[in-house]
Design a binder for these strands. Structure first.
Length: 293
DNA sequence: ACCCAGGCGGGCG
DNA sequence: CGCCCGCATGGG
């Protein structure tokens, strides 16, 4: 749909692993050419990113300034992070070291807090394919459409539905998009966020405080809150504990002994201080490929 | 025809 | 607290 106006050299970055690792872009983006080409809408601009080895090409419609576009790409894909340094600090054992070797360049992306919140409320007790389907329907049904003219051609860009728009919908309407029992959560969260709950205020709050506040919203518990804090706010201490992480950590680090969620959080905080979230991502993918049950 | 999915909320002992 | 259950839906 658009040309590639900018390019940059990247190292320790893999677009495919990054967008296929169940992050918001996994649900929001069009993923083409086996993950080497990704398109997504950010702030009502359509952005294209393509990786060719260590070269990253990118462009946007409408055309953002070169500086602004570069900032968006760097921020979204966490390209300023020193992965070698992070890898050194999280490779505390062979299990994670092997995972880093298997999925080099998988990064934790930074996404809009509202979009991230909706994505992970939808993600609970669900699977990736269906999450994508539901998110696409929500955007198609309730997203605002902007028409953009480029080179005499007209493009319609649909952006993510706002809290205000979703708050006005009936639960039944939201369920028509396939949200299922999460429909009431989406409505509740949208109502809060379009009223007194300011999601953007949480950027400046410490991890634990922000987590407590998120968990006051319907449909947001321990795991979903951590996903939002990690990929919406880039709080690196967030360590989402889902069924997989719980099983894997019990198996790999506790010799199979059952642990409470709390105890798993404590363990992660001690073992990967400051990089819990990235460690989580590598643990998850290593464990899934081993099919630990 | 089942069975499952990267949880959460509510009810109970 | 910790445990257990129900929950909407589409794909395997």
């Amino acid at each position: 749909m658009n040309q590639f106006s900018g390019k940059m050299k990247v190292s320790d970055f893999d677009l495919k692993y990054t967008v296929e690792s169940a992050q918001p872009l996994t649900f929001l983006a069009e993923i083409l050419n086996d993950g080497r080409h990704v398109g997504y809408v950010s702030d009502s601009s359509h952005i294209n990113v393509k990786q060719e080895g260590e070269l990253l090409r990118y462009g946007s419609v409408p055309n953002l300034s070169a500086a602004k576009l570069k900032r968006e790409i760097e921020r979204r894909f966490a390209l300023r992070e020193d992965m070698q340094k992070i890898y050194e600090s999280i490779a505390t054992d062979k299990f994670i070291a092997d995972s880093i070797e298997k999925y080099p360049g998988m990064r934790v992306t930074e996404n809009d807090p509202w979009e991230t919140t909706v994505c992970f409320v939808i993600s609970q007790f669900n699977n990736v394919k269906r999450i994508r389907l539901i998110i696409r329907k929500l955007i198609e049904t309730y997203g605002e459409e902007n028409n953009v003219e480029v080179g005499g051609k007209n493009f319609a860009i649909k952006s993510f539905p706002t809290p205000e728009v979703l708050a006005q919908q009936s639960v039944k309407g939201l369920m028509k998009c396939g949200t299922g029992f999460r429909g009431k959560y989406i409505k509740g969260v949208a109502e809060a966020c379009s009223d007194s709950f300011d999601l953007y205020r949480l950027y400046n709050k410490k991890y634990h405080i922000a987590k407590e506040e998120l968990m006051t919203l319907p449909g947001i518990g321990d795991k979903v809150a951590d996903c939002i804090l990690l990929m919406g706010y880039k709080k690196p201490e967030a360590f989402p504990v889902d069924t997989w992480i719980k099983r894997i950590v019990e198996r790999v680090y506790f010799n199979g002994r059952k642990q409470s969620i709390k105890s798993i959080h404590r363990f992660a905080d001690e073992r990967w201080p400051g990089n819990q979230g990235i460690a989580q991502q590598y643990i998850f993918w290593a464990g899934r490929s081993l099919k630990i049950k």
